[in-house]
Computed example of a mutant assay.
Amino acid sequence: MRIVEESYLGHRQGSVVARRHGISRALLTQWRRAWHKGLLDGGRPVFTPVEIGPDLRDRQREAPAMQGEDAHARIEITLANGRRLAVSADIEAVALTRLVQVLERA
Rank of each mutant, 00 (worst) to 15 (best):
G10C: 10
T97A: 15
K37H: 10
A93D: 06
G53C: 08
L99F: 07
A63H: 10
H21T: 04
A73P: 00
Q67K: 14
P45S: 09
L56P: 09
V94Q: 10
T78M: 06
R61K: 14
P64T: 00
D41T: 13
R2F: 14
L39N: 03
G68H: 03
L85K: 02
I91L: 13
P54Y: 12
G42L: 06
H36Y: 12
A18Y: 05
T78D: 04
G14H: 11
I3L: 14
A86D: 09
M1K: 05
S15V: 13
G82H: 01
R83W: 01
R44S: 08
L103S: 04
R2H: 12
R20M: 08
M66R: 12
I52N: 03
K37R: 13
H21G: 06
G42T: 09
E104R: 13
L28E: 00
R33P: 04
S7V: 05
R25H: 12
Y8V: 06
V94S: 09
T48S: 11
V46M: 04
R61F: 03
W31D: 02
Q101A: 15
V4Y: 06
Q67P: 00
S24T: 12
R61H: 09
H21Q: 04
L39T: 00
Y8I: 07
H36F: 15
R61L: 07
V46W: 00
A95D: 12
M1Y: 10
V100Y: 06
D55I: 02
D70P: 00
D58H: 12
R105S: 13
S88H: 09
L96W: 10
A86C: 13
M66Q: 07
H36K: 12
H21Y: 15
R12Y: 15
M66W: 14
L9W: 11
R19E: 08
V4P: 01
A93W: 12
L99A: 05
L40Q: 04
E92D: 05
I23N: 00
D70H: 09
A63F: 08
R32S: 14
A65R: 08
P64W: 01
A73L: 10
E62L: 10
R19P: 02
E76G: 13
T29Y: 14
A65Q: 09
R19W: 07
I77D: 00
A106N: 11
R2Q: 13
R44E: 07
G53M: 06
Q30P: 01
R59M: 12
A106G: 14
A93E: 07
I77R: 03
T97R: 14
G22V: 01
S15C: 05
G10A: 08
V17K: 07
L39C: 02
P64S: 00
T97I: 06
R20S: 12
Q13V: 04
A71T: 04
R59E: 01
A93H: 10
R59F: 14
I3H: 06
L99W: 09
R83I: 09
R32A: 15
R74W: 01
L99M: 15
Q13C: 10
D70T: 04
T48L: 08
R74G: 03
V17H: 08
K37V: 03
S7M: 10
A26D: 02
L85S: 00
L56C: 03
A71E: 08
I23K: 05
L40P: 01
R61Q: 06
N81K: 09
A71V: 05
W31H: 01
R74P: 03
R98E: 15
A93S: 07
H72Y: 09
G14P: 02
D41P: 03
R57E: 06
L103M: 14
P54R: 07
E5A: 15
